[in-house]
Design a protein around this nucleic acid. Sequence first.
DNA 1: GAATATAATTTAACATGTTAAATAAATTCA
DNA 2: TGAATTTATTTAACATGTTAAATTATATTC
Lengths: 157, 157
Amino acid sequence: MARLRPIQQSLPMQLLRAREASMAHFRPMLRTHNLTEQQWRVIRVLANVEQMDTGELAEQTFLLGPSLTRMVQTLERDGLVNRQTDPKDLRRTLLSLSSAGRTRYEAVSPDSEALYEEIESAFGHAKLSQLYKLLSELNDALNLTEQEETRAYARSK
Amino acid sequence: MARLRPIQQSLPMQLLRAREASMAHFRPMLRTHNLTEQQWRVIRVLANVEQMDTGELAEQTFLLGPSLTRMVQTLERDGLVNRQTDPKDLRRTLLSLSSAGRTRYEAVSPDSEALYEEIESAFGHAKLSQLYKLLSELNDALNLTEQEETRAYARSK
DNA sequence: GAATATAATTTAACATGTTAAATAAATTCA
DNA sequence: TGAATTTATTTAACATGTTAAATTATATTC
């Protein structure tokens, strides 16, 4: 029987390792601003729009609905985000950044940008572009074959 | 003030997106074997050794200690893993795969390998190698600058 | 060799990830 | 139009992520 490849050589683990290595830079910084990585993602997206519904915010931040629902509760309690039911579609919840949320955003932004630039200069702009390109192509390739598989496993279950 | 780059163009999000795209293939498969992604990582590492202590297992699987502690409790309850205190260093816990654990490993392996091959053929072997190389270099670059920053934030806190 | 420091693991507390099911509103269509 | 379907969000339940603190054992040092 063919032996399964070592886990360290697997694509998901390589990607996880790289992501952890990059987040190891951002997390301590966010910690000094009393934000989690995911909260910062939400604030950052909301900072660039008037308002956004939960579904689109979930897509933009790569968070799942249930996580977002919980997070928004605490973000609202902490006064960083406002919620409002969409008057045009009562199923939807519209979210927006409060002024305290915007203040926080503006406090974190320079620190965040500084880390990006540090990473770019450590890794090199050319390599970074090349990496982005490959990751984007990988996504395209993976998403093409995804649907059939999902259906296949759904059937066999 | 310089505007912060859009979140979708950030390195951590690109890596997260790629990882999610790849895990979207593996998770449904693992689900049919009643394993979570992290449980599979633990089993897979233990399948290649006689035994291993918690610390090294945490490194190999990229799991944090507290997560591993909890997981091992359920894995032991489910009869997939055995625990034992290291007689040479009573602080350490030695973990090993039970025979039921090995059976599960051998059931999952072919499905896992099949997905790897599917991904390789969808994305291309050459590109995949190139991606691995870049990710590895990124890790090296990131880990070099990590320590100083961590210390900097520790001081400012 | 007792006091102190270091190391490996675990506990605790809170946040998020994941899937399934429930809820409620909008949409479709017979 | 009203029953059936679809859609957006939330709840629920369990698993993992993250940090800090506690625990227990080994290693150091005086």
